[in-house]
Design a protein around this nucleic acid. Structure first.
Lengths: 331, 331
DNA sequence: TTGAAAGCGCTAACAC
DNA sequence: GTGTTAGCGCTTTCAA
């Protein structure tokens, strides 16, 4: 099947290509009968406008690039859904880029993005390098970052303040007499863990103490489970153990149980990033409901706003809140 | 910053735009010193070729469209990673499209894909409509579908034969005297469940029996857990319960345990789609390791092959195998 | 209301 | 080895 173009339609409908263009773009000025004539020609030939040519002519691609860390779909899934749903509404397409653990081909990706002339970029990445971002802003590409608080001329952000999340939680614990809190390292999310440590330190300091419950997982251990198995066997000197992801919470739960202790009686357990698996564990694990879908949806909405309202979107820094969901692993 | 084009570079380097084009495309014929001169101009101006214009001129976009069911990132994540890794190697970009549960805007997506003139399409969708696919093939877009066995002129497929997977497993069970197998409905994956039922029926028929262990979840129950809680309380009249997803396996595990029974002594449990959560459950749940990453990687490789070798790729139907991972939920 | 024609930025013959 | 030029398919003035 020959590639059929606007010229073919014009010829078929016996009008100029300008008129066809007007019809497909819903211009008001076209007379009804010629509009119909053109429509029929379009139908008959099965014509679909070439978005690439349109993009070139209009200097806009109606696609936005999305950068997410590879292999993070577990906790990125809902965010992506949020992004996509809103993108659909505004007729934007999504170009998916992923950054691989460790390897920083972030520069390749940025290069690629610039070349593809997307209208905007959404970045969801733990370890975000300010310099790399500058690359993008230099080319005037509007950006929204998810998860990190930051903004300037062309970048907006949507995030949850994890630092104050744990801060609040820790303050509450301490007030209730649970002064020994532990935070488990998460190799996959160093930046996140840093935020959490900061929040904890702050809460301790305010109570005239120093936070010393950070539990690192020695490199020789392949998994948190293996390490915790050892770590936990002579008892857990903490009131509450905090983990970032569900799988780590489950590792704590399993090892603690296997060491003959009880949750929440001997030690309480909280998982920051809640998931359905938390409620499948026994006892069910308490967690913070993070508005992941909204993070995506709001980010995309913000971006479209930046795209249309050009250079004045007042609130380019949007903080979303969370909800603590107490279950059976805390008292 | 003004958008800088190939003309600007040409002027800066004092050559024609054709020469610049040759340089950026790595043409051999350019003399070394002019190549250097052009390179310098490119650097100096920060020029990045416009992929849209290239796409228009070359009639190829080097991007391929990806269609996945929304909210399925949990079990699609690794597949996407496989796709992306290979796509990167061949310098293809990925356009992400998602189909929403129920709503069939598949037609919108296809329309969109045709307009965007992608070079190829990868479809990963449970309920794939042959007609919709024809839309695409009509426009000569090479397609690879993941998960469904099918192929013709312009479509290839990469899949795991779940039907024979359960068939083999059931045959084995029956041979060992475990004749009462159950399969739990999975509302999210009707097509998959159908395959599984077929495989089980086949195995039973070959043993002169009829499969009657399909457990439907009545609509009034909001979750498998709630239903199973009821269902299980007077005992489970099966030797082995089979579920598709990990969360269902966990629902079975929890309800069975809560009803005072023991896994695997009172009833065995197997999860088709294995995941890390299966090994975090206690007892750990047996499952089939599906090569999800490879499904993606192989699919993309196949597509690139179809894209380059045009009309003769011999094996356009690729079956991948699986590995049974026995854990503690089976004997 | 419609058409002619000049771009959008790049590639690829074809000339020189 | 390098430049000229005709597209690629579409949008958008500017005239008519």
């Amino acid at each position: 099947m020959k590639r059929i173009t606007i010229y073919d339609v014009a010829k078929e409908a016996d009008v100029s290509l300008a008129t066809v263009s007007r019809v497909i773009n819903g211009s008001e000025v076209v007379r009804e009968d010629t509009r119909v004539k053109v429509q029929e020609a379009i139908e008959k030939l099965g014509y679909k406008p070439n978005a690439i040519a349109q993009g070139l002519a209009l200097q806009k691609t109606t696609t936005i690039a999305l950068i997410v860390p590879e292999a993070s779909y577990f906790y990125t899934g809902q965010i992506i859904n949020g992004l996509i749903d809103v993108a659909k509404i505004y007729k934007y397409n999504l170009m998916l880029h992923t950054t691989t653990e460790g390897i920083t081909e972030m520069n390749d990706i940025i290069e690629n993005i610039i070349k593809s002339r997307v209208d905007g970029v959404v970045i969801f990445n733990d370890k975000l390098n300010k310099e790399e971002l500058n690359q993008l802003t230099k080319y005037q590409v509007p950006i929204v970052v998810i998860g990190n608080k930051m903004s300037d001329e062309t970048v907006g952000s949507v995030y949850v303040d994890y630092s104050s999340l744990v801060y609040d939680y820790a303050m509450d614990c301490i007030a209730k007499g649970k002064k020994r809190l532990a935070l488990i390292e998460d190799r996959k999310n160093p930046a996140m863990i840093k935020q959490l440590r900061d929040g904890l330190s702050r809460a301790y300091k305010e109570n005239g103490m120093e936070f010393d419950g950070y539990i690192e997982i020695p490199k020789e251990y392949r998994s948190s489970y293996l390490f915790l198995k050892e770590y936990v066997k002579d008892g857990v000197p903490y009131d509450v153990v905090i983990t970032y992801r569900d799988s780590q919470a489950m590792a704590v739960m399993n090892t603690v149980k296997e060491a003959g202790m009880n949750i929440p009686d001997d030690v309480e357990l909280v998982c920051i990033l809640d998931s359905k698996y938390n409620s499948m564990a026994r006892p069910q694990i308490s967690g913070f409901k993070i508005p992941d879908y909204d993070l995506g949806a709001v980010a995309m909405r913000l971006l479209t706003k930046m795209l249309t309202d050009e250079n004045d979107v007042p609130d380019k820094e949007i903080e979303l809140s969370y909800i603590f969901t107490p279950r059976k692993s805390t008292k």
